[in-house]
Design a protein around this nucleic acid. Sequence first.
RNA 1: GUGGGUGUAGCCCAGAGGUCUAAGGCGUCAGGUUGUGGCCCUGAAGAUCGAGGGUUCAAAUCCCUCCACCCACCCCA
Length: 419
Amino acid sequence: MFQAPRGTQDILPEDQPYWSFLKEKAEELARLYGYERIDTPVFEVAGLFVRTVGSGTDIVEKETYSFNDRSGDQMTLRPEGTASVCRAYIEHGMASCPQPVKLFYHAPIFRYERPQAGRYRQHHQFGFEAIGDGDAVLDAELIDMAWRFFALLGLRNLTLQINSIGCHKCRPAYLARLKEYYAGYKAELCGDCKVRLDKNTLRLLDCKKSACRSLMIGAPRSVENLCQECEEHFEQLKSHLLTLHLPFEINSSLVRGLDYYTKTVFEIQPEEKLGQSTIAGGGRYDGLLEELGAKPTPAVGFAAGIERIIINLKKQEIVIPEVPKPLVFIVWMGNIARQAAVKVSGQLRSHGIATMMTYTPRSLKAQLRQADGSGCHYVAIIGDEEVVQKVVMLRDMRTARQEPVALDMLIERLQQKIH
RNA sequence: GUGGGUGUAGCCCAGAGGUCUAAGGCGUCAGGUUGUGGCCCUGAAGAUCGAGGGUUCAAAUCCCUCCACCCACCCCA
C-alpha cells in the first residue's frame, strides 16, 4: 500500500476548519497592515537559496529537496519563503513601486529533516515581507503584526524575544571576539560546539548543553558590540516596541539559522513548550537584495508555521468557527419521486441554496439518519403523495416539525429561513 | 545524521508461545413491518495481527532485518 511520503501529511476535512480559520486571519492581518498577496513557484533555481540562505547553513547543506530537471538545470523545492519573494521583487522591478513593498504569502515549505512533533518535511508558512525601508519603525510594526496575529487567533501565553545581531560592518568584529572567548574554553565545549566554533560561531550561544550554557553567560553579547548605526537602530526599535506596548524580552543568545539576517531578529514561542516551540520568527535582512544583484535595499520579514500554530490552538482548546453545513437534505421514495428530487436539487442550487440528497434507494429511516448526520437544518421529503400534490414535506430537523410546502413556494420559503 | 519508544479492522484498543477460526468500544451498512432522524436494541461487513526472514511440533505473542510513526538531540516554522 502506498503511504504519504515520510514527513508529509494529508490535511483531512476534520482539520480544514483550522486551515481556513488561519488563512482568514492572516488575510485580515495583511489588510490591517497593508500587505498584498504574492505567490511564487514551489521550486526555484537551486542557486537562489545557496546565495541567500547561505551555503554553510544546515538548511542548504543537508535539508534541501533538489533535482535536475530534464534539461539538466538544478532546481530546489523552496526551503523557506523570503528568497523567492526577494527574487520576485527584483525580477518585476518593484524597486519602482512606492517603498516599502509589503507582500505576504502562504506556501508549502520543504526541508529534508527527521520528522517529529511540529516538524515535517513539508510544512506550511505564512510569510510577511516588507522590502525597501530600513527604519526601525518598520521593524517594530512588523513585530507588532506578528504579535497581533496570535492575538487574533486567540492564542495565549506567548513570549516575544528580540535581539540584534549587527550588520556586515560590525558583525565580523563581534564574531571574532566571540570566537576568541570560546576558543579559550575549547576543552569544555561539547562536540557539536567544537564544530560550531569554526563553522557557525553564532550558534555557540544557543547550545542547550549545560556546560556550554554556563560558558554562554560570560560570552560577549552582540547587543554590546554593535556599530553606532546598529545600536541606534536597536534603541529605536525597543522604544517603538514600548510605545506599542509589546511585552518583549531581549534574548542575547537568540540567533537564527539563515545567514541573511542583520540587525533585528525575533521569535515568538508558546510558554508551554511542546516539541518544536517557535511558532513565528523573522528579522531584518538588509543585505539580501544586494546579494541577489539589486542595489542595496533594506528589508524585514517574518514567517509563522501553520502546523505548529494549529498544534497550539488544539492544545489551548481554542474554538474555531464551524464550516457551515448545507441547508437542505432531500430524501425520496420511489422512482418518480427520485426524478422530482433531482429536479428540485438543481433548482435549489441554482438559487444558491446548499443541498444534499440521497442517491441510491434506501429506507426512509436510513435516509433520515443520513440527513441527521449531515447536519442539514431542513429535510425535504418527496414521496408519491408529494409528487401528485406538487409539494415537498419540509421538515425542520431541530424542532422535528414538518409541513407540506408547494414546489413553487419552496425556494422562497427556504430563502426566508436563511434570514 | 545520532539516541530511545511504539506498530493488532477507518479510529480507540484487549491480548504476553498452544483455549486466537484474534475480544470489545466508536464509526460504517442493514434491520427493529406498512412514509420519518437524533436514544435504545439486533445483525452484518471490515484484520494476510506494519513488512520480510528465522526459532519452535506450535508465534499477534520469542529473535533478526527493514519500514513507518512518536520522542529527544541537531536544526527550524
